[in-house]
Amino acid sequence: MIAKRRRIEENLKIESVPTYDGDCSSERDLKLVSGSLYLPKENELKPKGDDSHFICQKEGVIGVADGVGGWALKGIDAGEYARRLMKNCYVAVKKGEIDLKRVLGEAYAYTKVAGSSTACLLSLSDSKLHAINVGDSGFMVLRRGRVVYQSPLQQHRFNHPYQLGNSNASDTPSCAQELEFQTRAGDIIVMATDGLLDNVFPWEVELAVWYRLWVHEQDGDDLIPEEIAYDLAEIAMYNSLDHFAETPFSIAAKQAGKERRGGKVDDITVIVSFVI
Rank of each mutant, 00 (worst) to 15 (best):
R5G: 06
I8V: 15
E10D: 12
L12M: 08
K13C: 09
D23E: 10
C24F: 00
S34D: 03
S36R: 04
L37A: 02
P40T: 07
K41T: 11
N43E: 14
G49S: 05
D50M: 04
F54E: 08
K58I: 00
I62W: 03
V68K: 08
G69Y: 07
G70Q: 07
A72Q: 12
A72K: 14
K74H: 07
I76C: 11
A82F: 09
L85H: 03
L85V: 12
M86C: 14
I98G: 06
I98V: 13
I98T: 15
K101V: 13
R102D: 14
V103C: 09
Y108H: 04
T111I: 03
K112T: 10
V113S: 00
T118N: 10
A119I: 14
L121I: 08
K128N: 05
L129W: 03
I132F: 02
N133Q: 04
D136Q: 07
V141G: 12
G145M: 10
R146T: 13
V148H: 03
P152M: 05
L153N: 02
R157E: 06
H160F: 12
Y162A: 09
G165I: 12
N166W: 01
S167N: 10
N168C: 10
A169P: 01
T172F: 10
P173R: 11
P173D: 08
C175L: 13
C175R: 13
A176L: 04
Q177M: 15
E180H: 14
F181I: 13
F181Y: 15
A185R: 08
D187E: 00
I188G: 00
V190G: 01
D194P: 03
N199I: 00
L207K: 04
V209Y: 03
W214R: 09
V215F: 10
G220L: 12
L223W: 00
P225T: 07
A236V: 01
Y238W: 05
S240K: 09
F244Y: 04
T247W: 07
P248R: 08
E259C: 01
R261C: 08
G262C: 08
K264M: 07
D266R: 00
I271P: 00
V272P: 07
S273D: 02
S273G: 05
S273P: 02
S273K: 11
F274I: 12
